[in-house]
């Protein structure tokens, strides 16, 4: 135990525990880094191929190796994917889908988080009789396959005149984002010291004042996590997009699938890959920028706090 001189690491997710590495070039290290390198190839290969393919001309794709970098660099596929490739109805590129996805994602993220944060706050600090029954249904409901509920939802939306409408799709995203987000916010507000809440109550602050002035600012990191979680999930959604929007309002995922899997015309693999990258760009950026917060979001959502 001679090597145990360093202070014990804190238990945060960033710190490693377990046996310390020995010499730099031991068999153990070679095995470990060998496995890591091998697996990294599996994980990185697709994105490498996507980028390389999207920068080549079609003749080069037909002649050359899928893994090779482009001999003749071209950005033509990107321009075509963005502004002129056919997406089924029109040939205006995937930019229309990009805009549609933004128009769908932004209000859905805002509304779902607004509703769920207030809900989590009510559930954790203002609990009322029966609240837990609804909450339990909500959490169990998160596991029900969407396919079971989708047709009656179509009927409900048609009855209230929102079927095929942006508002309807936003509503659907809000409903299905509620279990996970409520759970996140409920657990976060549970960790607020009770004294703080009591003090605010004694000072005469009410439900909304406490939420807006004290709790919401304190929960700011959780709001960031929720935004990351929701914007990625909603941007990547396909099923709801197909069912609850009309072809001219299809989100990017649906248009992308239409472009690549269309049976008409010559297959332009470079344009397909450029379009694929374009639609992956937003969640990928969110992921790379947010780093540990992204991990925290999925971990907090997955492992019940």
């Amino acid at each position: 135990m001679a090597d145990q001189t360093a202070p014990a690491p804190s238990r945060g997710i960033a710190e490693a525990v377990g046996p310390r590495p020995r010499r730099a070039l031991s068999v153990r290290n070679i095995v470990i880094y060998g496995i890591l390198a091998l697996l990294s190839v599996y994980y990185l290969l697709p994105i490498w191929v996507m980028i390389m393919t999207s920068l080549k001309g079609m003749p080069e794709i037909q002649m050359g190796n899928i893994f090779a970098p482009p001999v003749e660099l071209t950005f033509e596929p990107w321009i075509r994917a963005w502004s002129s490739v056919c997406t089924g109805l029109t040939c205006e590129g995937i930019s229309t889908g990009f805009l549609n996805s933004v128009i769908i994602t932004v209000p859905s993220v805002v509304l779902s988080i607004a509703v769920a944060s207030v809900n989590g706050y009510a559930l954790s600090l203002w609990r009322f009789r029966g609240a837990n029954v609804f909450f339990t249904i909500l959490i169990i409901g998160a596991f029900i396959p969407y396919q079971v509920m989708i047709y009656p939802i179509v009927i409900i939306l048609r009855e209230i005149g929102l079927y095929g409408d942006l508002a309807g799709l936003v509503l659907v995203h809000t409903v299905f984002g509620m279990p996970i987000l409520t759970l996140l916010f409920r657990n976060d507000f549970y960790s607020v010291p009770e004294e703080l809440f009591m003090a605010a109550r004694i000072d005469g602050a009410g439900f909304w004042t406490i939420f807006l002035k004290i709790m919401a600012p304190m929960a700011l990191p959780m709001f960031v996590v929720a935004v990351i979680l929701q914007s990625t999930a909603i941007w990547n959604d396909f099923l709801f997009g197909v069912i609850f929007s009309t072809p001219q309002n299809y989100p990017m995922t649906v248009q992308l699938n239409n472009i690549v899997n269309s049976v008409q015309g010559v297959r332009e693999y470079n344009v397909n890959m450029a379009a694929t990258l374009l639609s992956g760009l937003v969640p990928l950026t969110i992921y790379l920028v947010s780093g540990k917060l992204f991990v925290r979001g999925i971990a907090a959502g997955a492992v019940k706090g």
Partner: peptide, 23 residues
């Protein structure tokens, strides 16, 4: 390494399916 192993999770199943279709 963690970033490398987790990034596919940020992408949609559509993107995943299309890139593996190509590979």
């Amino acid at each position: 390494f963690r970033t490398i192993f987790l990034y596919p999770y940020a992408l949609s199943f559509i993107v995943t399916g299309l890139v593996w279709q190509w590979l």
